[in-house]
Structures are given as C-alpha cells and as structure tokens.
C-alpha cells in the first residue's frame, strides 16, 4: 500500500555547539499556533504529558521561555514493539516585542495544550490619528 501521508514527527530542539544539557533526556520543540487578536496575542502550544506543575513559563527581559518537563513512563515488564514518537521535555523560546503588557500575561494548560495570552500594552494598540486640514 502506497503511503502518501506522513506521520507527525516531533522535532528535537537544536542546541548550540559547545552547549551540553545536564540531563540526558531528549527535548522537543512543541508545535505552536500564534494568533494575533485585537487586544492580545495568543500562543497555543501542544505539550502532551505536561500539566500546570511540570510547566514553566518564564519571561526575562524580552525572552519568553516555555519549558515543560515530561517523565517518560515505561510500562513495567513490557517491551516496545513499535515506536513512532519519543518522549521528552518541551522547550521553546520567543523574543517578545515591547508592546506586551507583561503584568497581565495569562497561561492556562488543559489536555496537554498550553494557551498563553499576551495582552498588548495600551500604547501599542492602534491609534487613529486625526488628519486635519489647515
């Protein structure tokens, strides 16, 4: 049977040369949707296996980092006979522009999906400039 479709492949995070991770576990890049709304920007990230306790969202200067820890669960006494995906942590880093109101950022995690709401700062909301005739 010819298989036209492709499987979803998890992408591993690339590390810069010379930098090593302290943990041996794999780290994947979560797939994200970024939606621009009127008053806010919404980042939706697929991070299956992550809950509110194992997810860190940090903002340092302009850098927003999502890091989700996933404990690989190997069923006891079982062997893997077919494997299409690996299990590991998730990491993704975004550079934010200044227009975000940092104090009002909200993060919700449900069914392994992180929803991050980044409200735009008042000053960044589009202002209509009145043009007057002399």
């Amino acid at each position: 049977m010819a298989e036209v479709a492709t499987e979803l492949q998890k992408k591993e995070v690339e590390t810069k040369e010379g930098i090593e991770r302290t943990r041996t576990r794999k780290v994947y890049t979560p797939a994200v949707d970024i939606i621009e709304k009127k008053g806010e920007i919404v980042v939706v990230a697929d991070m299956p296996g992550v809950d509110e306790k194992s997810l860190d969202v940090t903002l340092e200067r302009n850098v927003l980092t999502l890091y989700g820890r996933v404990e690989p669960a190997i069923p006891e006494g079982h062997r893997l006979i077919a494997s299409e995906y690996g299990i590991g942590d998730y990491q993704r880093v975004f550079a934010l522009s200044d227009e975000i109101d940092r104090d009002r950022i909200r993060a919700i995690v449900k069914n392994g999906v992180l929803r991050l709401v980044l409200p735009k700062a008042e000053s960044a909301k589009t202002r209509k400039i009145a043009v007057t005739v002399e």
Partner: peptide, 12 residues
Amino acid sequence: NAEFPAFNVWVS
C-alpha cells in the same frame, strides 16, 4: 489532513 498523531505499542 496528511498528518497523523504518532503511536507507541508496548507488549508483555
């Protein structure tokens, strides 16, 4: 959609 979620299969 030409993509699928991935599965793992364990047996004992």
